[in-house]
Each structure stands twice: as C-alpha cells, then as structure tokens.
Design a protein around this nucleic acid. Structure first.
Length: 113
DNA sequence: CTTATGACTTTCA
DNA sequence: CTGAAAGCCATAA
C-alpha cells in the first residue's frame, strides 16, 4: 500500500489538504501527485468521485488554471459549487454565466500547508 | 496491448 | 484578441 497509492487516492488526499477559504488549480494538484501535465487526470479523478467521497473531498475548491468553474457538464450545478465556496468565504463572481475566483487572493499555497 | 474519453493546458492560425 | 487543434496523463473498454 505504501508502494504507489492509486492516483485517485493521492489526488483526494491533496484536495483534502486544501484549507477552507482557499482554492487550488488542477495543475497544482497534478504537480503534487504526479506532473503538471496530469491536470486532465486530476479532473478525471474528481469526476470519478463517489457520493461518499464528495462528502470528505472538497472538490469544489479545485478549479482550472483560469480560476473558472468548468463543471457545467456534470450533474453538480456550477451554482452549487459557487455556493459552497461562498460559504467558505471565497469571493466568487459570475461572469458570462461562468463562475470566476480571484486566484491572486484565494489560491492555495501548498508550501504553507 | 490498442483505442477512446475527459471537471485540463498550451500553442497555432 | 478569439477560436480551433494538439498534447500530456490516467482510466476504462
């Protein structure tokens, strides 16, 4: 088990480390678990989240490099994710029916974990 | 083992 | 600057 935890598990643990009121990009999580190019794979991991995992993994704090929520295609509405972030104190602004977050202010710094 | 898909990112036109 | 295409990583079939 200590050999190579599943990529998913690693992603989940990293995401769980994200403090409330902060957000992380796929690229950042991907860099921690594997390589910066694995951002797509991170998205894949979060897509495969089970309802049980949704309760323990703050997937709402993970967004793309532009600080925008691209979750429109999933069953979870963007408004729901935005609501969760707002509840954590993250300022989310709605532009062109897309939710944007100020990465300069709310981007998580894994070094200061 | 090869092909296809994706909650992404970067580059080319 | 805006829009489209390719690329990289991991998983599923």
């Amino acid at each position: 088990m200590d050999k190579d935890k599943n990529f998913f598990q690693k992603v989940y643990e990293v995401v769980k480390k994200i403090p409330a009121g902060k957000v992380a990009t796929y690229q950042q999580v991907a860099t921690i678990v594997s390589t910066p190019r694995a951002a797509q794979a991170v998205g894949w991991a979060l897509r495969a989240l089970s309802e049980n995992q949704l309760a323990v993994v703050p997937w709402q704090r993970v967004i793309n490099s532009k600080g925008m929520i691209s979750i429109e295609n999933l069953k979870a509405p963007k408004e729901y994710q935005a609501k969760l972030l707002k509840d954590e104190g993250v300022e989310v602004r709605l532009v062109e029916n897309n939710y944007f977050i100020d990465l300069k202010k709310y981007l998580w710094d894994p070094h200061t974990n």
